[in-house]
Measured scan of single mutants.
Amino acid sequence: MRKLSDELLIESYFKATEMNLNRDFIELIENEIKRRSLGHIISV
C-alpha cells in the first residue's frame, strides 16, 4: 500500500466500492487513506 500514490489509492478505493469487493479489502484501503490523512477526500 505504501508504494501507491495518493491518487492511485483514492482511485482504488472508489473502484473497490463500486465493484462491491470484499469488505476487508476495502477496509485495508480505508485504513491506509486515514494513515495518510486523506480521509476528507472520501469522508472516512
Rank of each mutant, 00 (worst) to 15 (best):
I33K: 00
R2E: 15
L8T: 09
L8N: 08
D24N: 10
F14N: 06
I10K: 03
L4Q: 04
S43L: 13
R23T: 10
K3D: 15
L9D: 01
K3N: 15
H40T: 06
D24W: 09
L9V: 03
R36S: 00
E32G: 01
L8Y: 07
D6P: 03
I33Y: 01
N31F: 11
S37K: 14
I42D: 03
M1E: 03
E30M: 14
S12N: 09
L21Y: 11
Y13V: 01
E18A: 14
R2W: 15
N31Q: 14
R23A: 12
I41Q: 07
E32L: 02
K34N: 10
L38D: 02
L28F: 05
R23C: 06
L28P: 03
E18K: 08
Y13C: 01
I26V: 07
L4W: 15
L38F: 03
Y13P: 00
E18Q: 12
K3F: 14
A16V: 04
F25I: 12
I29Q: 01
L38T: 02
M1D: 03
I41R: 05
S37F: 12
V44E: 12
L38C: 01
I29M: 09
F14M: 10
R35I: 05
G39I: 12
T17Q: 14
I41E: 06
D24Y: 05
G39E: 13
I33T: 01
R35T: 04
N22D: 14
S12I: 15
A16E: 04
E27F: 09
T17H: 13
L28H: 05
F14Y: 13
H40P: 06
F25Y: 14
M1K: 02
S43N: 13
E18H: 08
T17W: 14
K34M: 12
F14T: 06
K15I: 09
E27V: 11
R36T: 01
S43A: 13
S5R: 03
D24F: 05
K34A: 09
M19L: 14
K15G: 05
H40I: 07
S12H: 14
H40A: 09
K3H: 15
M19T: 06
I33M: 12
R35K: 05
F14S: 04
I29Y: 09
L4I: 06
E30P: 00
I42W: 03
A16Q: 05
F14K: 10
L21F: 11
F25L: 12
R23M: 09
M19D: 10
L21N: 08
S12M: 15
V44A: 14
I29R: 00
S5I: 05
L21I: 08
R23S: 10
K15L: 12
K3W: 14
F14G: 03
E27R: 10
I42Q: 04
E32Y: 02
S5Y: 04
A16R: 05
R36Y: 01
M1N: 03
I42K: 03
S43Q: 14
L4E: 02
N31R: 11
S37W: 07
S43H: 13
D6R: 03
R36H: 01
E11L: 13
H40F: 11
S12V: 15
S5G: 04
E32M: 02
F14A: 05
D6Y: 06
N31T: 12
E18T: 10
R2K: 15
I42A: 05
G39P: 05
R23V: 07
I29G: 00
E27A: 12
N20V: 06
L38Y: 03
L8H: 10
E18I: 10
L9C: 02
I10V: 08
D24L: 06
I33Q: 00
L8M: 14
R35C: 03
S5H: 03
K34E: 08
R23P: 12
E32V: 02
K15S: 08
L4F: 09
L4M: 14
D24E: 13
R2M: 15
E18N: 08
I29E: 00
I26T: 03
S12K: 13
Y13F: 08
R23D: 07
E30C: 07
N20R: 09
R23L: 09
A16D: 01
K15E: 06
N22E: 11
T17G: 06
E11N: 08
N22I: 05
G39F: 14
E32D: 01
R35H: 05
A16G: 04
E32W: 01
L4G: 01
N31Y: 10
R36A: 01
I42G: 04
E27L: 12
R2T: 15
R35W: 05
K15N: 11
S43Y: 09
A16N: 03
L21K: 08
E11I: 11
N31D: 12
S43E: 13
I33A: 02
L9I: 04
F14H: 08
L9T: 00
I10Y: 03
F25R: 05
R2P: 06
V44S: 13
I10G: 01
D6C: 04
N22W: 05
I42Y: 02
Y13E: 00
I33L: 14
N20I: 05
E11W: 10
S12A: 15
G39V: 10
L38Q: 02
E27H: 09
K15C: 10
L38N: 02
D24K: 06
I42L: 12
L38I: 06
S37N: 14
F14E: 05
I42E: 03
I41N: 06
F25E: 09
T17C: 11
L38K: 03
I26E: 01
S12P: 00
Y13D: 00
F14V: 08
E32H: 01
I10D: 00
V44H: 12
I33G: 00
I29A: 02
H40N: 08
S5N: 06
F25N: 04
K3I: 09
F25V: 10
I41L: 14
G39S: 13
E18R: 08
N31H: 11
I41G: 03
R36E: 00
S43F: 11
N31M: 12
E30Y: 13
I26W: 03
M1Q: 03
K34R: 13
R2H: 15
I29D: 00
Y13I: 02
S37M: 12
E27M: 14
R2C: 08
M19H: 09
E27D: 10
K15W: 12
R2I: 15
Y13R: 01
F25K: 05
I10T: 03
R35V: 04
I26Q: 03
K15H: 12
E11P: 02
N31G: 07
